[in-house]
Structures are given as C-alpha cells and as structure tokens.
Design a protein around this nucleic acid. Structure first.
Length: 256
DNA sequence: CAACGGACCTGCCTGC
DNA sequence: TGCAGGCAGGTCCGTT
C-alpha cells in the first residue's frame, strides 16, 4: 500500500550481481514513472509501473524496507528504488539468491512467470489438479509438490508439513497416489499455508514481516526441524533424509 | 519428455 | 582460536 500511486525518482544499484544481473539501465527505466499496482505471483513480487514492470524475488535471504534515502547503506544493501519525497525502497539480500528484473509491459508476459502453476489459495488448485499432473510421473511427491510448474508457493518447510498432515510419505512416487489422497494433500497445503500466514510466517533465524515482527508458525511445525523427536500424532521418532537435495522429515508410521 | 545434479551466494554452526 | 565442512527459507538450467 505504501508504494501504490507513488512516483519513482530513479534507482541506485550498488551490487548488480544478484541471481541474474540487475538491468544496467534500471535507473532510467523507472525514473519518473508512477507505481500503478503492486502484486504477487508465486514468490515473485510485481511492481507494475506505467509502460513496464519490476519483478522482484527475495530468494532465501532477501528483505525490503522503506527508509529515508539518506540512510547510509549497510553491507548487502544492494539496491534502492528512490521514491519521490525523499524515501526509498531498499533491497537487502546477504545470499544474493534474489533478483530484480524488468519487463516491458505487464509482468505476466515475463518468461519466468509464464509457465507457473496455480496459486495454492485460489481456485484452480485442488486434488484433481495434482492427480492429473502426477499421472505417469515417477518423481517423489515432495519435489513434485515443490515444483512451481505444478503449484507455486510451496517451499521446503510447508511441503514437509503438508505431507505429514495428509499422511503421505514424501518419497512416494507422485504417479502412484490416488485422487482421494491428492484431495487430502491439496487441502493440507491450503491449510498449512493459511495458518502460517495467519501467524506471520515461519521464523527460523532472522525472518520478520514488514512490521519487523517474527512469525510464530515455527511453534506449530509438526515435522520440519524435528528429526529424531517424537511424532506429535503417534509418538514414533521422526525420520530424516535428503530428497532432491532438500531436508526431508516424516513420520514412518503416519505417512505411507 | 522426465529426472537429476549443479549453480548462484553468504552466514552460521559444528567438529576437529 | 582457527579453519574446513556442511547446511540453510529458492528455483533455474544443462546434462543425462
């Protein structure tokens, strides 16, 4: 809401080597243009200007803050979008897995957004969708669920949690799960995400919301980060392994 | 086509 | 105390 309707006076790029190079002419691209709308698609943030769009991704470690433009930049403060009136939107990203891209015209035309699956909290995502796309797939269901072409927004933590709630083993082949169980999984994904959003997200170390407050969903995690501990449902020790290079935790009794 | 590993980075923790 | 190694919230891309 802070950005909508505001005019940009330009951009200051201090580090252009993010996941992809920040456009060299970003300053002139945004200068003098007004923010028409701010949106989101998957984990991409969309700042729609007249005649073009900024597409931002925070990666694993990125954050945005509104500050007076005169605030001295700290380490890893890679970029400022200058707002008319003396403030700026500052991107901080220690790991530099984030990105800042420009798309002429509407953001939806960008190739990175074109092939994304449905939003998990909107119509178009349900058990039937998952069951259809899983047909014939031998990939494990957890990486399948984390594939943005299948559904966006399900990262490692929430994939682990949703599979536990749905009683599905994370290593089960995606194509060997019934439509009924996919209906349970889709419902679990929606529920986990809705609850996490309601509690401000999952703070592991330093994540905070835009209000500076941590999120409290960590207190409700059933499996993520609990390997070896007792399943909160059946007390069986939780097991862990790496699946698709990601930490995976499950209950060998509750999840089949 | 599907599946997999590698790549992009820094910071923090553990264990030697 | 220092240092190497492994791991972390993401996700694209090239190679099999």
């Amino acid at each position: 809401p802070f950005l909508r309707g505001r005019k940009l006076d330009g951009a200051v790029v201090r580090q252009s080597r993010l996941r992809w190079p920040v456009p060299a002419d970003l300053d002139s691209l945004v200068c003098g243009r007004r923010v028409r709308a701010v949106g989101r698609r998957g984990k991409y943030l969309l700042i729609e200007l007249a005649e073009g769009s900024l597409i931002l991704h925070l990666g694993m470690s990125g954050s945005l803050r509104v500050l007076p433009s005169a605030t001295p930049p700290g380490r890893h403060d890679h970029l400022d979008l200058l707002l008319a009136g003396g403030r700026c939107l500052r991107l901080h990203d220690p790991r530099r897995f984030g990105s800042v891209l420009w798309q002429a015209g509407p953001a939806a035309a960008h190739p990175l957004l074109a092939a994304l699956g449905p939003e998990p909290l909107e119509p178009g995502f349900d058990g039937g969708h998952l069951h259809d796309l899983a047909h014939g797939r031998r990939v494990a269901v957890k990486p399948f669920l984390m594939d943005a072409k299948i559904v966006v927004g399900v990262g490692n933590i929430y994939a682990n949690e949703a599979l536990h709630r749905a009683g599905i083993h994370p290593g089960r082949a995606a194509g060997r799960i019934s439509a009924a169980r996919y209906a349970l999984l889709a419902a679990a994904v929606r529920k986990v995400l809705a609850e996490a959003i309601a509690t401000g997200g999952t703070t592991l170390r330093d994540y905070t919301g835009s209000d500076g407050e941590p999120g409290w969903f960590r207190l409700q995690l059933q499996v993520y980060g609990r390997e070896g501990a007792a399943c909160r449902t059946c007390a069986t020790p939780l097991r862990a392994a790496r699946l698709g290079q990601r930490a995976t935790v499950w209950c060998p009794r509750c999840q089949r």
